[in-house]
Simulated assay, not measured.
Amino acid sequence: MSAHLVEKALELLCGNYIFADRAQAAAEGIRRRLAAGEYDGLDEEALGERLTAELFEVCQDKHLRVRTRAEDEREALTKPELEAVWREQQRLSGYGIARVERLDGNVGLLDLRFVTSADVGGRAIAAAMDLVSQTHALIIDLRRNRGGAPDGAVFWTSYFFPDGETHLNDIYEGATGQTRQFWSHAWLPGERYLDRPVYLLTSEATFSGGEEICYNLQAQGRAVLVGETTKGGAHPTDRFPITPTFEITVPVARSVNPVTGGNWEGTGVKPDVAVAAQEAFDVAYRLALQHVLASATAPTILAEARSALA
C-alpha cells in the first residue's frame, strides 16, 4: 500500500512542482528508499511526515508537504469539490477575520488568521475596513496568520494605496510559463486607509499569504512590521488528493516582487522593529498612541491616548 501512495505522490510532485529539477532530484532519492523498503509498515500519518521531511531536505520548501487530510475534506476529490469545501470553511470562520476593534486612543485593530480570496470574502474585508476607517492608526495582527489567496492579499493591501497605480506583486506560473501581475485596485468598496500609519504584528508562525501582506507593504514603505521574522513560504500552492484521506500540497508558481526582484521564500520577512511575538502588540500600540498624541486635535481622543499610554 505504501508503495502505491509514494508513487502517486511523486507523480503529482514531478508533474506540478514549480522547480522541476528539484522535484526530479527529490523523487530519485525517495524511490531509492522505497526500493529499500524504508517505508514498509508506515501508516499514512507517519508516511506523510517522513516524505515531507525528505522533500524538505532537497527542496527547502515549506509549502511542499504530504499529509493526512482533514475529516471534512475527505469526500472532496475533484477541484470543484475542494473549492466548495474551502468556501464553506471560509464562511464558517469569518473569512479569517477573528477580531475587529477600536482601541482607546482611536487606534484600529484587525486580527487576521488567514487571507480569504477577494471573490469569496470581499464583503467581509470591506466591512472590517469600514469599521476601522476613521481611526488615527491601524494595527493588523498577523501573528497567527497561516496564509491564503494572493488576490485576497492584494485586496487587503489595496486599501492602503490611493489608486490602481501600485504594482504589488508578480506570480510566475509554471504550467503556462506566464507571469501574472498584481496591482492595487483602482476601485474599492468603502474608504481607503491613507496617510495614517499601519503596524503589522508578525511571528515565526506567520506564513504564506500573511507574509505576502507583510512583504508587499514593507517593500512599498507603507507599513511598519513589529515582531519576529516570519516563517518563509512564498510559493503559491495547489492541493492534490492522493486518496480520500491523504494528499500532497505542491507549489505551482513563485512570487516575484516588482520592488525587490525577489520574495521571502526560505528567509521570511524581517520586521522593522524586532521584538518577541508576545510583545509585538504592546510595542505597536505604544507607537500608534505616540502618533495619535502627535497628530490628533480632538480633546477626547488625546485624553484616551494619554490614559492608554500611561
Rank of each mutant, 00 (worst) to 15 (best):
M1F: 03
S2A: 15
S2P: 05
A3W: 09
L5W: 15
V6I: 02
E7W: 00
K8Y: 06
L12T: 05
A20D: 08
R22F: 04
Q24W: 03
E28L: 06
E28A: 02
G29C: 10
G29P: 12
A35Y: 11
A35H: 11
A35W: 12
A35L: 11
G41T: 00
E45Y: 10
E45A: 13
E54V: 00
L55V: 00
C59S: 00
Q60T: 10
D61A: 04
E73W: 15
R74N: 08
E75L: 04
E81N: 06
V85E: 11
R91V: 11
R91S: 08
S93A: 07
G94K: 00
Y95T: 07
Y95Q: 00
E101T: 00
L103N: 03
D104A: 14
G105E: 14
N106I: 02
D111R: 12
F114W: 04
F114M: 04
A127G: 02
L131I: 03
T135E: 07
L138R: 02
D141N: 02
D141E: 11
P150Y: 09
P150D: 12
T157A: 06
Y159I: 02
F160H: 02
G164F: 10
E165T: 12
E165C: 13
T166W: 05
I171C: 09
E173Y: 14
R180I: 11
Q181A: 06
F182H: 13
S184F: 09
A186I: 07
L188W: 06
R192P: 06
Y193N: 01
D195Q: 14
R196P: 13
P197S: 03
L200P: 08
L201I: 01
E204N: 12
F207I: 00
F207K: 08
G209D: 12
E211T: 09
C214Q: 02
N216E: 15
Q218A: 11
V226S: 15
E228Q: 07
T229C: 10
G232W: 04
H235W: 10
F240E: 01
I242H: 04
I248E: 04
I248S: 03
I248N: 06
R254V: 07
S255W: 12
N257F: 08
V259A: 03
V259F: 05
G261C: 03
W264N: 03
T267Y: 14
G268P: 08
P271V: 13
P271G: 09
D272C: 04
Q278R: 14
A280D: 11
A280N: 02
A280L: 09
D282M: 11
D282R: 13
V283E: 15
R286V: 14
L287P: 12
L287S: 12
Q290D: 09
H291A: 00
A303Y: 07
A310M: 10
A310R: 15
